[in-house]
Amino acid sequence: MGVHEKLRVLDHIYRVYDGFIAGRETACRRKCARCCTRNVTLTTLEAYKIAVHLVDSGKSGLFGKLAAAVDVPRFIPRVTTNALADICLRGEEPPEEPNDPDWGGCPLLDDGECPLYAVRPYGCRCMVSARRCDDAGFAEMDPFVVTVNNVILQYIEHIDRDGWTGNLTDLLLFMASEESRRRYRDGAPDHPPGGLIRNHPVRALMVPPRHRQQIAPLIAALENVPPASAPGG
Rank of each mutant, 00 (worst) to 15 (best):
H4E: 15
K6Y: 11
L7Y: 00
V9E: 10
L10H: 07
H12N: 07
H12K: 01
H12E: 06
Y14R: 13
Y17C: 09
Y17I: 11
F20D: 03
F20M: 05
I21M: 13
G23D: 15
E25Q: 15
A27I: 02
A33H: 15
R34V: 08
C36L: 03
R38A: 02
V40D: 00
V40G: 00
L42N: 05
L45F: 08
K49G: 04
A51E: 10
L54Q: 02
V55W: 06
D56W: 04
K59Y: 00
K59L: 14
F63N: 12
G64E: 15
K65D: 13
A67W: 05
A68G: 00
V72T: 12
V79M: 14
V79T: 05
T80I: 05
T81D: 13
L84G: 00
I87M: 04
C88N: 13
C88K: 12
E92G: 02
P94D: 05
P95L: 02
P95A: 07
E97T: 12
E97P: 09
P98W: 02
D100Y: 01
D102L: 12
L109C: 06
G112S: 08
P115R: 06
P115E: 04
L116N: 12
V119M: 04
P121F: 03
G123P: 05
G123W: 02
M127D: 11
M127W: 08
A130K: 06
C133R: 14
D134N: 11
D135H: 13
F138P: 00
A139H: 01
A139C: 15
M141A: 12
D142I: 09
V148R: 10
N149K: 04
N150M: 11
Y155W: 14
I156P: 09
I156W: 08
L171G: 11
L171Q: 09
L171W: 07
F174R: 15
M175T: 07
A176Y: 04
E179Y: 10
R181F: 04
R183M: 09
D186R: 14
A188P: 08
N199M: 01
H200N: 09
H200G: 03
V202D: 00
R210L: 06
R210M: 10
R212E: 13
P217H: 13
I219W: 01
V225H: 13
P226G: 13
P226F: 09
A228T: 14
P231K: 00
